[in-house]
Design a protein around this nucleic acid. Structure first.
Length: 259
DNA sequence: ATGACAATCAGAGATTGA
């Protein structure tokens, strides 16, 4: 089963690029972030015409996540538990059942800049809620994965210019510590278990010719539960998508599971 | 030190992103 994550930076602006990539990559499941759309305006029919089931958790203008799946999306839940006052659409879960049942958690983790400030406090609190959710899922012993735009640069080798990010919410020590607290529950970071080389990125800023200079960062990740990691056979980044017409600033990352 | 670039909503320019 091929499962991909892609921060599309606006479904309306990105629909042609997204359709081209779907046709080529043929993921069984696509986890989308930053749809920047309310549920009613998401063009679900064009995906249904390609054989995908669609579940969205959108909001006006910003954020918004969605799941596309060729297998039925079962037990869909929207929103990250732990704060009933959180209005931001950043989290969705569903179960897909192939050879194994896998709980798919799609997330768009807050950016957190500027540091310090309320946005950074929200990011760290959100990461603590994500850790709590991972603990609950681990206790259930069902294969699960948490994938999406984490807005976290895990290590210096995950940035072309790590010194530029030292004061940034994506790379601050507190951010990376919160990331490690989640990983160290016993999750597997899919890309790094398959590939330890530097200079593999998933985001290049639109500004300053970042793509042309390969000034990128690796911030889109798959975390796998132990049962899910046992099924991992591949993890790749579709880098070339960034060089196309009207690209997102992120590119897809995908895994293959023997499931 | 600032802005650079892109998207959204709205119908100009502020806000957000990373």
């Amino acid at each position: 089963m091929k499962i991909a994550s892609f921060n599309i930076n606006g479904i309306k602006a990105r629909l042609p690029a997204l359709m081209d990539w779907l046709d080529e990559a043929q993921p069984d499941v696509a986890i989308l972030q930053e749809i920047k759309s309310i549920d009613e305006n998401f063009p679900r029919e064009v995906f249904e015409d390609k054989g995908y089931n669609v579940a969205t958790h959108g909001q006006k203008s910003f954020n918004g996540v969605a799941l596309l799946s060729k297998l039925p999306l079962e037990d869909v839940t929207r929103g990250l538990p732990g704060d009933d006052d959180d209005e931001q659409a950043r989290y969705i879960e569903a179960t897909v059942v192939g050879d194994h049942a896998v709980r798919i958690c799609g997330l768009y983790l807050p950016n957190g800049n500027p540091v310090p400030g309320p946005k950074y406090d929200y990011k760290l609190a959100w990461m603590d809620r994500l850790r709590a959710r991972a603990e609950d899922l681990l206790a259930e012993e069902m294969p699960f994965l948490m994938a999406g735009d984490y807005n976290i640069i895990p290590q210096p080798e995950d940035a072309a210019r790590p010194q530029d990010w030292i004061e940034d919410a994506l790379f601050r020590p507190e951010s990376r510590e919160a990331w490690r607290k989640i990983v160290n529950l016993g999750l597997t970071e899919a890309f790094r278990v398959r590939n330890q080389a530097p200079e593999h990125y998933t985001f290049w800023d639109f500004q300053r010719g970042a793509w042309q200079r390969n000034d990128g960062i690796r911030i889109d990740h798959f975390l796998l539960s132990p049962e899910c990691a046992d099924l991992l056979t591949d993890c790749q980044i579709d880098k070339e998508v960034r060089g196309r017409e009207k690209p997102s600033d992120h590119v897809p990352i995908w895994i293959n599971l023997a499931a």
